[in-house]
Simulated scan of single mutants.
Amino acid sequence: MKRLSAPRLNQLVARVPGRDIPIVMPETAQSDPGLAVCLAWQPFGSRAGLSVLFQLDERLAAAVAQAREPMLAQVRLAWWRERLSEIASNPASGEPLLARVSETWGPSGGRLAALVDGWEHLVGEPSLSTEDMTAFATGRAEALRAFANHAGAGADADAAASIGRAWAFADLAVRASDEAERKMARSLGSAETVALPRSRRLRGVAVLGGLSARALLRGEPIMEGRGAAAAAMRLGLFGR
């Protein structure tokens, strides 16, 4: 991967969360243990929608990480953007993940194309700029904003967007290939104001927000270090 370290990405995926988390991971849990914990706290009725969002983000990350040439990554991202734009008129698809987007999100699944827009800014020249990082964060922010509306918590859409930005910067702060870029991502993320949603319909998103803010403060992945499991439990129970 040009800008994000593929070995580091693999380490993040393989890491196991703290064994003191007294919750059962849902069937829709992700390979990233931090996101799996967030899903476990998301109310069942909208959990599948959040899971699909995370799965799509992970697929796009792989498209960027595994492409040998930037042009190949661009082609893959363009394919996803086009397919997502067609979901409202053509929900049927031979791609299982697209089918799940259609099943869980319906016509509004096209709004997840914001993730594609964000990942596209991590393809190109080796140097990752502030503008690229910010655009990537905006992609995740708009995807979580769309999820808040999808989950019936539109009043908390701005809070969900702030969490999307924090999640993006926290991710880059540990996954960017260059130390200077990691420091820049952490600085940008630390300057963000993370607003935790009030609605219980976004409890899993609140967990993601709190863990992302904690990760930026500590310079660690969102479920690493002592106290991560306890922080997830507190956020899951009280949303704060």
Rank of each mutant, 00 (worst) to 15 (best):
K2A: 05
K2H: 13
R3T: 02
R3E: 09
R3I: 08
S5T: 12
S5H: 10
A6V: 11
P7N: 15
R8M: 09
R15Q: 09
R15H: 04
R15Y: 03
P22H: 14
I23D: 10
P26W: 14
P26H: 03
E27V: 09
T28Y: 02
T28Q: 05
S31Q: 14
S31I: 04
S31P: 04
L35T: 05
A36V: 04
L39N: 15
A40E: 13
W41K: 06
S46H: 02
A48Q: 13
S51D: 11
S51I: 10
F54K: 11
Q55A: 13
R59E: 09
L60W: 11
A63R: 07
V64F: 13
Q66R: 06
E69T: 06
M71Q: 09
M71L: 14
L72K: 10
L72Q: 11
A73T: 07
L77F: 00
W79H: 12
W79E: 15
R81C: 00
R81Y: 00
E82H: 03
E82K: 12
L84T: 01
L84P: 03
A88R: 13
P91N: 08
A92D: 12
S93A: 09
G94L: 10
P96S: 14
L97T: 08
V101L: 10
T104P: 04
T104Y: 10
W105F: 08
P107K: 09
G109I: 06
G110D: 02
R111M: 13
L112H: 09
L112S: 05
A113V: 00
A114G: 07
L115A: 14
G118M: 01
H121I: 07
V123R: 05
G124E: 11
E131T: 12
M133G: 08
T134D: 12
T134F: 02
G139A: 12
G139V: 09
G139M: 08
L144Y: 05
F147W: 08
G152D: 04
G154N: 11
D158A: 10
A159G: 04
A159S: 11
A160S: 12
A161H: 04
A161P: 01
F169D: 03
A170E: 01
D171R: 02
R175E: 03
R175L: 08
A176H: 13
A176N: 06
D178C: 03
A180P: 00
K183N: 07
A185E: 06
S190C: 07
A195L: 02
R198M: 03
S199I: 05
R200Y: 09
L202C: 08
R203D: 14
V205G: 07
A206G: 15
V207F: 15
G209L: 10
G210M: 05
L211A: 03
R214P: 03
L216F: 06
M223D: 09
M223G: 00
G225H: 06
R226D: 10
G227C: 01
A228L: 05
A228H: 02
A229R: 05
A231L: 10
A231P: 00
G236V: 04
G236F: 12
F238Q: 12
